[in-house]
Amino acid sequence: MNYEQKENMEQPKILTLDDDFSLIKRFIDGDEAVFAELVKRHKEKVRNIVYLTLSSSNSVDDIAQEVFITVYRHLKSFRFESQFTTWIYRITINKCKDHLRKRNVRRIFLPLSEEEKEPVLESINEDSDIKEIVRSAIATLPDKLKIPLVLKDLEGFSYQEIAVYNGM
């Protein structure tokens, strides 16, 4: 590989703190188009956190949309005291918690037949895949255990980050 070929190769994008911060600064300065870039960078992480937290694909996009709308509304008041990801994941966890709380409240007032179907262990039989069994088991965990587990084992966040996201 000669020098020219090296020049023409697409350089790998290295996501740094400055990248998010610079985009946010541009947004604050009035360039709202950069918000699309922030969405592009973080949407899948946010969607997966929601998905794993809820243990369901229902409402994932709705909650993820709410997360980014909240970010959009409050981005101009971002104080650059923490990473952008810390901020957005904390918002995501809070939205998930809100959703779970509302779902639990709704469940009280709904007849049994109309209750949202939850993944339950009864559905697991001998033929079930072991991954499915583990997923079902995680789904049955209470939120305060499930969310840190998801964030650590599934998304690889540190204990410190998990503590922050959960407002500890």
Binding site: S57, V60, D61, I69, K131
Partner: peptide, 22 residues
Amino acid sequence: LTSGSVDRISESPFFETRLFAN
């Protein structure tokens, strides 16, 4: 097992479109 049990949710092609519309 826990790490391996994770199914990543499929990408939503119209996520941005919906988002900006919202």
